[in-house]
């Protein structure tokens, strides 16, 4: 349904797929679509979107970070929507907090960056805080634990919202980690530049996950989840790893857990 014909009061949302979900975990974006749909939004997927630009920004490549921010402002503006929503704290925070700074000195772009920043949200906080909606369709008999991702919890205040949503999933029991807000060691390019440190941090996170006795660990950012899954699988752990949106949307049958295949291990 084109946005122009959306009935009044129905939120028009553009989905920011995020580059990691696009490539490594399409079911996360699919789950986001399903959740936003169930919450009564009209959702579009802007065609020209690629990546928010964090790889350049966090590597000190400001020129490319600025160029990528401009590109994405244009790509996301292509849909006339009320909100831009991403199944990631990291990407949403980058647009919300950094785009206005990256493009702030350029009069042609500052206003557009500000406008995009103000309407961009992380998925779970959008559903709970913005829409006041927690009526998730997911059902799953599982004992899970939850990793608070750094950008989500510290830059966007995503803490209570995933827990409120998980509490509505029938059959789901959540056991907290000992250190849920401790960084998992992903850190974008950090994880490949400093594998020894990253591996130690991911190892500590994996220990914490295993110690809860949960059969599954959930989180809201694909970078962290790839890292945690990579470590758990390297250790031969049977603990499953998924993006929380897949569980909330009832999409756990759509793909095996992260880092697991269709074959028996």
């Amino acid at each position: 349904m084109p946005p122009e014909t959306t009935p009044p009061g129905v939120p028009r949302v553009a989905l920011l797929v995020t580059c990691l979900a696009d490539l490594f975990r399409p079911t996360v974006a699919q789950a986001a679509l399903r959740l936003l749909d169930a919450a009564g939004c009209t959702v579009r997927v802007p065609e020209r979107q690629t990546c928010c630009g964090q790889p350049a920004f966090n590597s000190g490549d400001r020129v490319d970070a600025v160029a990528q921010a401009r590109f994405m402002v244009e790509a996301l503006e292509a849909e006339s929507v009320d909100y831009v929503v991403a199944p990631s704290g990291s990407c949403a925070s980058h647009i919300r907090h950094q785009y206005p700074i990256l493009l702030g000195d350029d009069p042609a772009w500052a206003g557009r960056a500000r406008e995009l920043a103000d309407k961009t949200h992380e998925l779970l906080s959008f559903l709970v805080d913005r829409l006041g909606w927690t009526d998730v369709p997911g059902r799953l008999d599982a004992q899970v634990t939850y990793h608070d991702t750094c950008s989500g919890v510290r830059e966007l205040g995503v803490k209570a919202q995933p827990r409120a949503l998980m509490a509505r999933v029938e059959g789901l029991a959540v056991t907290e980690l000992a250190a849920p807000e401790e960084c998992c060691g992903f850190g974008g390019t950090f994880c490949v530049k400093y594998p020894d440190i990253s591996g130690r941090m991911a190892g500590d996170k994996a220990d914490d996950v295993v110690a809860t006795g949960a059969g599954m660990v959930l989180g809201g950012d694909m970078g962290c989840l790839l890292n945690i899954a990579g470590m758990l699988k390297r250790r031969g752990s049977s603990v499953q790893v998924r993006h929380v949106a897949e569980v909330l949307a009832g999409l756990t049958d759509a793909a095996p857990p992260i880092g697991e295949g269709t074959e028996a291990p």
């Binding site: 490539l23 490594f24 975990r25 399409p26 079911t27 994880c191 490949v192 530049k193 594998p195 020894d196 990253s198 591996g199 991911a202 190892g203 790839l226 890292n227 899954a229 990579g230 470590m231 699988k233 390297r234 793909a255 095996p256 992260i258 880092g259 697991e260 295949g261 269709t262 074959e263 291990p265």
Partner: peptide, 24 residues
């Protein structure tokens, strides 16, 4: 079909310490 890689050329920084989950 295993859903992950234990080694990948040019991705040694990743696979040195952990597996690389692959796209379905």
């Amino acid at each position: 079909g295993r859903g992950r890689l234990a080694r990948l050329p040019l991705a040694g920084g990743w696979t040195q310490v952990r597996d690389l989950p692959v796209p379905p």
